[in-house]
């Protein structure tokens, strides 16, 4: 079975400082791959390189090969790529001046993958249900995200990503600033999503890694230390 993401010999420099050294990694489809490592080890950078978000930073240069769903990322249309492999940031960043509904809806609307309003309503509801947020917000879809707690906002961001029906979800320490109750919820969400998409998750929490990982990649100082399948 082809891996969803294949990285070979990735070396990356930001402003002439090397951040990633000889990274090689395979993320199998429909599995959760967890990348674990201490802060500053380059995990975020690695994640953002996969869907070319890193290109928004100045002074970035890299060599090596990255294939997403079998195609070299340079061959992808970058917006399609980012839609297919959606990145969710560490700190929740919903659009503060849009309503909860609009936050989830804007992705599908602008990528023109919606037929009509009824279709959009369905997608929004589906995304919020998948993110296990629907019951909590269904009565207040026209309120601003500011009324939600941190954990709820993070799930909103996940819903926003899911609305695009991505094939890959790239999550950057999704529960780093979230309380235990919501952390548990979000982990539940991710476990259930595994059947429908590939998940790559970055964390520095070993317990979380153990709970979620189908495959575990350990990274330190921009180097891969080991990659295992837990349970071996």
């Amino acid at each position: 079975m082809n891996p969803a993401i294949m990285i070979e010999d990735l070396n990356l420099w930001i402003k002439n400082r090397q951040i990633l050294h000889n990274i090689s990694l395979r993320a199998p489809a429909y599995k959760i791959t967890v990348i674990i490592g201490p802060s500053g080890s380059g995990k975020s950078t690695l994640l953002r390189t996969i869907n070319r978000l890193i290109e928004l930073t100045e002074g970035v240069r890299y060599t090596g090969m990255i294939r997403v769903l079998g195609k070299d990322i340079m061959d992808w249309d970058v917006y399609e790529l980012r839609r297919t492999a959606v990145y969710v940031a560490q700190t929740p960043n919903p659009f503060p001046h849009m309503t909860i509904y609009e936050n989830v809806a804007i992705g599908p609307v602008l990528h023109d993958i919606v037929r009509d309003k009824a279709d959009l309503d369905r997608i929004v509801r589906w995304a919020l249900e998948k993110a296990m947020l629907w019951d909590e917000v269904k009565g207040r879809l026209d309120e601003k995200p500011g009324v939600l707690s941190g954990g709820q906002q993070q799930r909103l961001c996940i819903a926003r990503a899911l609305a695009l029906k991505p094939q890959i979800l790239l999550l950057d320490e999704p529960t780093a600033n979230i309380d235990p109750e919501n952390t548990h919820r979000i982990e539940e969400v991710l476990k259930r999503l595994r059947d429908e998409m590939t998940i790559v998750l970055v964390t520095h929490n070993h317990d979380q890694a153990m709970r979620l990982a189908d495959y575990l990649v350990v990274i330190r100082d921009g180097h891969i230390e080991s990659s295992v399948k837990p349970g071996d």
Binding site: L81, V86, A89, P94, G107
Partner: peptide, 9 residues
């Protein structure tokens, strides 16, 4: 970042 993460140009 959020906007670009969603693949918006």
């Amino acid at each position: 970042l959020a906007s670009y993460s969603l693949g918006l140009s």
